[in-house]
Amino acid sequence: EGYSPTLKWQQQQVAHFSAVRQSLNKNRNHWQSQHLDSNVAMPKSEDEEGWKKFCLGERLYSEIEMLPDNENLGVDYIKVGFPPLLSIVSRMNQATVTSVLEYLMSWFGEKPFTPELGRWLYALLACLEKPLLPEAHSLIRQLARRCSEVRLLEENKNEERISALNLIICLVSRYFDQYDLADEPS
């Protein structure tokens, strides 16, 4: 009670997400041709730990407290994780998208949900092609179920985390046609 989003909100998110996917596909060639900074070293597809560090950052990956960044040097993406920029995700083929989703799912199975994780899960869902491959199908259902479990444990309903978990459950269930996992409209 109090967690479940309205049907209207869910339908809006599905429409926005669909528009984001169309824009991504329309401009994919443009972003693939963009130059990436030298410090953006995308891991190999099979490098699970490399992708976890790349997406979530050394700080979160190693759970070690690091000294605050020197403001003057700008953001250290190695420490905080590279955001899912279009110039990055547009370079990932479907096999890599599915592999990274699997790696982040295994992370999410044991670790808290964070904004960095949420942004990457959203970006990977945006890149997943339909019809879904069997392993992608199973992964996104696992993701929605895990979001539901984590949401149940959330004590503070007003948390941003609730909103993000609701969003992912909504997109998996209503955009990717996994209606049995959908939230009943409140």
Partner: peptide, 27 residues
């Protein structure tokens, strides 16, 4: 013109996610 700005915004996916998350609270 908005379509052009679409092309040039490397952070479009991040903004879309943050906006969607914020919209739930507003709703």
């Amino acid at each position: 013109q908005s379509e052009d700005s679409d092309v040039w915004d490397d952070t479009a996916l991040i903004k879309a996610y943050d906006k969607a998350v914020a919209s739930f609270k507003d709703a």
